[in-house]
Each structure stands twice: as structure tokens, then as C-alpha cells.
Simulated scan of single mutants.
Amino acid sequence: MKLVIFDVDGTLVDSQAHIVSSMAAAFAEAGLPCPDRSTLLSIVGLSLPYALAELAPQAEPHTLERMIAAYKDTFSAIRQNVGAQGFPLYAGAEAAVRALGARDDVALAIATGNSRRGLDAMMADWAFSDLFVSAQSADEHPSKPNPSMVAACLADANASAAETIVVGDTTYDMEMARAARCHGLGVLWGYHGRDALMSAGAARVLDDFADLPAALDEIWKG
């Protein structure tokens, strides 16, 4: 069985405005100056505690805990206010997932830096969520690029690393794939650029979701 593991933020879902707003609330809670938008988005993909520690290295542990709580509360409130329409799938994402899910030789999974609560809420709005045989969140695993989430997906799908491709928009996704001895496939509609993704180990980098099926088959053929 071949396996495709998708990242969520920046790969399937465009949530950058809500991430920025929630980060601003976290920094306001700590009374710290908020980094600029590009800096905030550069750490998308890391689990929240690691992301905030990276963005606010001067913050004491108790301050980071307050920031984490403020981020989660703000993000949850945004989700409740805007609903599914506020977390749109990227163009072509649903069609690509459904096409892969219809194949007998391919299983699908998710590995995200989102919390379990956030991931479950998001997937509850997807009419295609039942196509994923495994969905791993930051609450059960170390942060990317640790390969723990990939290992869980491999076990759930009964797939081998050699036949598995991680699809993501950040270097953390590509490094995670490499650490798990899987293939990495980068996408350019998220947060990290082509050169960074290739340097982190991406076998290919896509400009459009429509190119995904052909790119996957090309990697599998070796």
C-alpha cells in the first residue's frame, strides 16, 4: 500500500490570517512586541510551544505558558466565529484528496502541528475526512521535524517508508519526511519557498494542486 501524508496549515488549508491574529494575541498577553507577519508565518509547521519559544526566546517558561493559552483561546474563538468558511481549503485540495482516496493502491493520512482539538474541529467540516486512515496532531507527538507522527501514520496504514510521500509546505515537513526515510513533496502555496524546500530534501516542489497526482506517481516510479 502506498501512503500519502498531508500537512494541514499551508498545504490543505489557508489559515494564515487566523494564525497571525492568534500570535498577536499571544504576544499582547506577554506584553512583548509582536514579530512581523513574515517572521510569524516562517515558523508555521512547528508545534505551538516550539514556535513561540522560537519567536520569543527571551520569554520565561511561565510567560510562554500564558502565551500558549492566549493563542489557543484566540484561535478557538476565531474558529467558533467564522466557522468552516473561515478556514478555506486551497484551490484543488479537495479534488486532489478525493481522487487519491478513490485509488485502491493509496492510503491517506494527516500529520499536523495543530492541536487535537483544532484538527478534529477542522476535519469535522470536511466532507472527505473519512478518506484519511490516520490523523496525527501535535498533542500526541513531538514537534516536527521529529518523525514520530509519520511513524504512527505508517503503522496505521500498514505502509512502508519507501512507499510513503509527505506533502507539505515547510522545511519542517521535508525534514520530517527525510528523518522517517520517506519521500518529501513540497508545495509553494504555503509558507516556505522553493529553494528552502529543495534544500530540506523535497524530491519535487509543486506550483499547483492539479500537478499532485502526476508528481506522486513519478516519485513512486523512482
Rank of each mutant, 00 (worst) to 15 (best):
I219F: 02
G113Q: 07
L119F: 06
A135K: 15
R79V: 00
D7H: 01
E29G: 02
A214Y: 00
A179Q: 09
G83V: 00
G193K: 13
L40D: 02
G92H: 05
N81Y: 03
V4P: 05
A56W: 00
D207Y: 00
S143C: 10
A202P: 07
L108W: 09
E94K: 13
V150W: 10
A203G: 08
S129Q: 15
Q85E: 15
T164N: 07
N158F: 04
D217F: 04
S143T: 14
G45F: 15
Q16C: 02
L108E: 01
L46Y: 15
L3A: 05
S22T: 09
G201C: 04
N114I: 02
L197R: 13
S115F: 02
F132E: 10
A51H: 08
N114G: 01
P35V: 03
V205N: 11
A56Q: 00
M198F: 11
S137M: 00
A91Q: 14
G113M: 06
Q16W: 13
S47V: 06
D105H: 00
Y172Q: 12
D9F: 11
G31F: 01
L40P: 07
F209S: 05
A162Q: 15
M176L: 03
A202H: 06
S22V: 06
G45M: 14
V106M: 12
Y50E: 14
M122W: 04
P33T: 01
